[in-house]
Simulated scan of single mutants.
Amino acid sequence: MLIQIKPNVAVQWFATGDSDFNTVHQLCDWIFPASERVSPDPANPQQHYTAAIIQFQKVIACGQLTAITAGSGRRYLQLSKMAVARPFMYCGYRDMLLRAVIARATQLRAEGILLSARLEAIEFYRSHGFVEFAGTYQHAISGVQYQQMILLIA
């Protein structure tokens, strides 16, 4: 699914099973260090959706949604691997991408979006309606502090 944002800029969605799903992951690789690359586990049967903001046919931002079902049977989407390539930071693409993620979650009838935000990104997510839940935690390998957040979708 391709959504035109402005001239020469579009958000494209890729889902598990799409013929070009693995291709977009390779295109997103230049944004991430090797340890953080977008790569769903093929052994995991969960549905994955990857959003890519494409400008002049180059991926400049991406994020991954993974469908999860809570013990109550409620369906949520876990947002991870959201990033904008360095040359395009602070140009509004992070906001565009998150708005596209929220619209997609609404379209998929998810009850909410869960994410782990770096502490310096909490205000950004709050500005889009996310709230903190649970506590912060420290990533075992990187040592980065994260806060779990949720956006409930009506």
Rank of each mutant, 00 (worst) to 15 (best):
residue 16 T to Y: 08
residue 17 G to F: 02
residue 20 D to M: 02
residue 23 T to K: 08
residue 27 L to N: 09
residue 28 C to I: 04
residue 31 I to N: 07
residue 31 I to Y: 03
residue 31 I to F: 12
residue 34 A to F: 10
residue 36 E to M: 10
residue 37 R to G: 09
residue 38 V to A: 07
residue 39 S to T: 11
residue 42 P to E: 10
residue 42 P to T: 08
residue 44 N to P: 04
residue 48 H to Y: 15
residue 49 Y to G: 00
residue 49 Y to D: 04
residue 50 T to G: 03
residue 50 T to F: 05
residue 52 A to E: 08
residue 52 A to R: 03
residue 53 I to Y: 06
residue 54 I to G: 04
residue 56 F to T: 12
residue 57 Q to F: 05
residue 58 K to Y: 00
residue 58 K to S: 10
residue 59 V to Q: 00
residue 62 C to L: 07
residue 62 C to H: 04
residue 62 C to Y: 07
residue 65 L to P: 04
residue 66 T to Y: 08
residue 66 T to I: 15
residue 68 I to R: 14
residue 69 T to M: 11
residue 69 T to W: 03
residue 69 T to Q: 14
residue 70 A to G: 13
residue 71 G to R: 11
residue 72 S to T: 15
residue 74 R to T: 12
residue 76 Y to C: 08
residue 76 Y to G: 05
residue 78 Q to E: 15
residue 78 Q to D: 13
residue 80 S to V: 06
residue 81 K to H: 12
residue 81 K to T: 02
residue 83 A to N: 11
residue 84 V to C: 09
residue 85 A to I: 01
residue 86 R to Y: 09
residue 90 Y to T: 14
residue 91 C to Y: 12
residue 91 C to M: 15
residue 92 G to I: 04
residue 93 Y to A: 04
residue 94 R to P: 00
residue 94 R to K: 14
residue 95 D to W: 01
residue 98 L to Y: 09
residue 98 L to I: 14
residue 98 L to M: 07
residue 99 R to Q: 13
residue 100 A to L: 10
residue 101 V to W: 05
residue 102 I to T: 03
residue 104 R to S: 01
residue 104 R to M: 15
residue 105 A to Q: 05
residue 106 T to I: 11
